[in-house]
């Protein structure tokens, strides 16, 4: 089912930090979808803009994704929200993290501490 955490659903965490542009994210996301044959993408968003204002920076990405199902969920605004989200993930090796702009330093440190690779745009 679409909203279940099935194997078919790929999870990505996007952190919308200060500055940065989501334009590069458009190309990266499409590449990811095509390379991995993604049919369903669940995007968890961390943003200080709040809900639903974060879509202002993110809708250009949605506009370009027409070939797979999408679920977009706001997960909070702080590093603690991000940590909570990552810790609830069952398989960290499958977690994809994208940092847009400049996120808080402690967030990057947390990821490095867990050995989680991330993509910066």
């Amino acid at each position: 089912m679409l909203m279940s955490t099935s194997l078919d659903t790929h999870h990505v965490v996007v952190v919308l930090g200060d500055g940065g542009s989501t334009d590069k994210l458009v190309g990266l996301t499409n590449e990811f979808i095509i390379k991995r044959g993604v049919k369903r993408l669940f995007v968890h968003v961390i943003s200080q803009d709040g809900r639903p204002k974060y879509f202002e920076r993110f809708r250009n990405v949605l506009q370009s994704l027409i070939h797979c199902s999408l679920i977009i969920k706001y997960e909070g605004s702080t590093t603690n929200d991000f940590i909570r989200l990552v810790k609830s993930t069952h398989d960290l090796s499958k977690l994809v993290v994208v940092l847009v702009g400049e996120p808080p330093t402690e967030l990057k440190d947390f990821l490095k501490g867990l050995g989680i690779n991330y993509i910066s745009v």
């Binding site: 679409l2 369903r40 879509f55 949605l62 027409i66 797979c68 199902s69 999408l70 969920k73 706001y74």
Partner: peptide, 13 residues
């Protein structure tokens, strides 16, 4: 339960 903000049902669903 918590709901996501946005769902787009793609061709596979």
């Amino acid at each position: 339960e918590e709901l996501p903000d946005y769902i787009y049902v793609g061709p596979s669903d």
